[in-house]
Design a protein around this nucleic acid. Structure first.
Lengths: 145, 145
DNA sequence: TCTATGTTTGAGAATCGTTATCATTCTTAT
DNA sequence: ATAAGAATGATAACGATTCTCAAACATAGA
């Protein structure tokens, strides 16, 4: 038994490592974030976290997300329409394709584009602190001309 | 005389061309947009438009911006922090560098990046409908290592 | 030029996502 | 166990934007 207990231990360790106080609510939210393969918004995270720990308020979800973001544990995205959406910082840096029809989010990574961005900034006397690249796309028809 | 009248005529023509009804408020707002070299938000546009035509409400600014966007006359940007910001569609497509210290907006254009975006999307079975590329930058120190 | 029709308007209420307030409860170091 | 400070839930407040609705307006046609 104790998948749940294992998860709790992991989340506790992760929080301590990030220098963040450990509370039931934070463990629940971080657990939800760790399991999520989509990019949920605060409302959705609140819904999922309540299933694990009923006493999680939406306010705490927002507060905790901010804390986790500052601790480098999650990334916040502001895609077109609606509110912010979140994902854990487990994988390497990547950008996003958003399917404009289905809302699906696909991750991709391009060293070439990153390099070009740095070059462009450098030529203008700047250095890139962070960037945002989102491709709003539509699935190509199988036999499109 | 009649810089103002000329502008009005131009804006009237532009509105008619886009199939948009001509009203004093829309002429004023479009005039403000045409003159702007920065990327103002709705509040700022309202402020400027009221100097030309006092009877412009904020609601109408928002409504008109939506209409102009649908008519392809302006572009709406959602940069980090604060509300949407707007610019006219006079120039060619470009992306933006945002100076994180000063808030300044610099425009740039890179065919290479656009090509790479198309390639990446194509390889994943998508085609790009529109994209968003923002480089949040800091000015490089003159003698930085 | 006058009129009929549908459109746009201003004012303010309503909405949405998010943050702030504050008394209470909880973590943590001791 | 306890003190001291941090986190919490509930809800009010917030900023940006959209909606509502009666009144004013633009446009096409006689």
């Amino acid at each position: 038994m104790s998948d749940a207990a294992d998860t709790t231990d992991k989340m506790t360790a992760a929080l301590r490592k990030a220098g963040i106080r450990v509370t039931r609510q934070r463990i629940a939210l971080l657990g939800v974030l760790a399991e999520a393969t989509d990019h949920p918004d605060a409302i959705e995270l609140h819904k999922r976290a309540k299933e694990i720990e009923q006493s999680v308020s939406l306010a705490t979800v927002y507060r905790t997300l901010t804390v986790l973001e500052e601790g480098g544990v999650v990334h916040r995205h502001a895609f077109d329409g609606g509110g912010a959406r979140f994902e854990t910082t487990h994988e390497e840096h990547h950008d996003h394709i958003l399917d404009v029809d289905t809302g699906e989010v696909i991750e991709f990574q391009s060293d070439k584009i990153e390099q070009l961005q740095d070059e462009i900034a450098r030529e203008l006397g700047y250095e890139v602190v962070h960037h945002r690249l989102e491709l709003y796309c539509r699935k190509k028809a199988a036999g499109s001309s």
